Structure formats: C-alpha cells, structure tokens
Simulated assay, not measured.
Amino acid sequence: MKRSFKKNTSLSWSADTELVGLVLALRPTGADLLYPQYTIGLHAWFLDQVRQTSPDLSAYLHDGESEKPFTISALEGALKMSGKHLQLQPEQTYFWSITALSQPVVQWLAEWVQCLPTQVELRNAPLTIQSCQIALAPTTYRQLLDAPIPKPAQVNLSFVSPTSFRRKGHHFPLPLPTNLFHSYLRRWNYFSNLPVEQESFLDWVDESVIIRRHQIASTKVAAGKRGMVTGFTGAIELGLSKKSSLASPQNQQLFYALGRFAPYCGTGHKTTFGLGQTRYQWQIEATEKISTHSQQLGERIAELAEQFTTQRKRTGGTRTQKIAETWATILARREDGESLQAIAVDLEMPYETVKTYAKLARRALRQPD
C-alpha cells in the first residue's frame, strides 16, 4: 500500500496523551540482505534506543508483566528474494510503524522524536531515517471511550500482518469476535485505568457481535525469537445483533471503543515482533505480502518441532514443546546458512547453549554435526 505524509504534521502532543502511533520512512544504504526473522532486530534496536536514554523504562519493557505497552511493525515495502534472504531495494522507501499504549512510553517517544538517530541499525543492513510522522492520532483511553458511535454502526478491521491467538497451547488463526475483543480488553484493562469486568463483557460479545462479512487467508510464518506462527491476514466487518442494539449501552460503547483501540494495540500475540498489525477500516489491498521464504522457514520450523516433540513426548508438559520449538528454530535457521553466533544473539541465549542445541537437534534427526 502506498503511503503519503503530510509535510506539516507536528511531532508533538499534549502531556496527558496515553496513545499514539508513529511511522518512520526509511531508505536502505544499499542492496543489503535481511534474514527472514529481521523483526527481531527491529525489536532489539527499539529497546536499545529506550535503554540509552531511560534505563528505568527500558528495565520495565524488558522485565515487566506480559502486557507490553508498545507494538512495532515489519518493514512495509518491496523486499525481493535473494536465495534464502530478503533483499532491500536501494531506490525503495520502507515504512516502519511504532505505537505506544501507555503514558510513560508516549512521553519517551515525545522526547525521542525531537532528536532522532540518523539510522535504524539492522544486522549488516542500516536504514537511513528520512522522516517520522504521526500515523495514529494522539489520544487518551477516555477519548476513545467517549467518541460517538460510528455511522454506519459497524467496526471494520484489517489485519495487515499475520495475526494469531494462543488457545490451549496452540495457535488459533481465526478472528472470532470473542478472541478479538479478549485481546483488546486485556490490554485496555491493563493500561487504561478504566477497567471493565472481563467475563461479562466477553459473554455479551459472544451473544451480540456478529460477523457481517470477511475475507481471510491463513499463512504460516517464522516469527518472534522462537518457533513459527500460523496466522491470518485479511479484513472483517463486525456489527451488533438487532436485539443487542436496543440494550447494554455501556457494552456497545466499549465495543466501538475497543475497535478504535485495535490499531494502537494490535491483535493477538507477538505484536512487538511485527505480528497482528491492525487497521480500523476494510482494506484488503493493504494486507502485507508475506515472503515465500518466510513461509518456508515457518513450515520447516513447524515440521522439525513436530518431530522433536514426538521424540520427546514421553517427558510431557510444556517444557517438551518449548525445547522442541527452540531446537527447531535453531536448526532451521542454521540450515538457512545463518551463523550460530547470530542465532544466539537473536535468541538472547549463550553461544555454547545454541551450539549444543544444534548438535542435539541434528543427532535427533541423525544428521552429521
């Protein structure tokens, strides 16, 4: 999707702002190569920017509770396949989005944008920052809640990067209303200071929210630091049943507020690694084209993880699955030609541990070390 910027957009907002979304325009310095899971590098670079100027906030983002007060996107723009890597195009401008869901992160961004670094540093692929603009208007949770009901009374959401939920230890790649609004409400309750009783609202969603139309496709991609994700992209139109439109005004108001909240918080899990990017409109043409190799890598990780899990199933428990996914991620990326050192850095694991896991994984498949 082609983006355009308003030249006079001001990179400032009021001190009470709780949510904001930014988009950076980036230009490669050459025809550099990216590894398929390069969003790990974007994630690490962003956290390092926070660390350099706000150690306390950095510690919270690294070590805080599971709900993270920010999201990042993958790069939006043409990436060509080059062997097992993605190749940046020197003449191409890429767009990278960052959103903040809490006042401390919003305040940090307000200072950061006044003195931006010159480059986003990815492994062997620096990107020059050409501009930074506001993509999602500065607002507060109260303003989202108090906004009038849209006309027509519906919520259109587009999922422009693979989106998935966790359910009973597995990925669940369907945008059921209860899954969507559980995802949004969990973050709303954590950050808004306007908490809502979760169970009763989700019961109401299950009874009242209907899917009027959808255009959804599924894909399997490598994402985050370990493993793969089966997710969906596409668009969905949601409305309320006739019965519900005559009752529960508070739930109705929250329903529309959470729809407006979705682009800020993203949908599902791994939103700090580029997944679950969401827009508040029906926009099928905006859905990201997932590279063939990223899908292949995800499928290879899934294949290996299943084999390792089967071999280790006698041990049982979630630890078996986690170890299997870690082994699978390391071996699949090693098969792709990545160095063990680079994999160790991305996974934030000691090099010797990664080396040992690679050997154990090969032996489990009876491959030569």
Rank of each mutant, 00 (worst) to 15 (best):
G41V: 02
Q87A: 13
V20Y: 03
L47Y: 08
N8L: 07
V105Q: 10
R27I: 13
I129H: 06
P117W: 05
V50Q: 06
M81A: 12
D56S: 12
Y38F: 14
W96V: 02
A135K: 12
P104R: 00
S14H: 05
A135R: 13
D63M: 11
L88S: 02
A110N: 14
S10A: 13
H43F: 06
S14Q: 08
L22A: 02
Q114I: 00
E76R: 10
A110Q: 15
Q87S: 10
Q89N: 11
S10Y: 08
S73Q: 00
S82T: 05
N8F: 09
Q49D: 13
G77M: 03
A44T: 15
T39C: 00
L26W: 12
F70V: 07
Q87H: 07
P138R: 07
D16T: 05
L26G: 07
E67D: 13
L26D: 10
A15N: 12
V106A: 11
N124W: 14
P36F: 05
V20K: 03
A74H: 11
E91A: 10
D32L: 02
R123V: 10
L61E: 05
T29V: 14
A74F: 05
L79E: 03
L144Q: 05
A74W: 05
L19R: 02
S14D: 07
V113Q: 09
L24A: 09
A100I: 10
P117R: 04
H62M: 15
A78E: 14
T99S: 10
Q130A: 04
T128E: 14
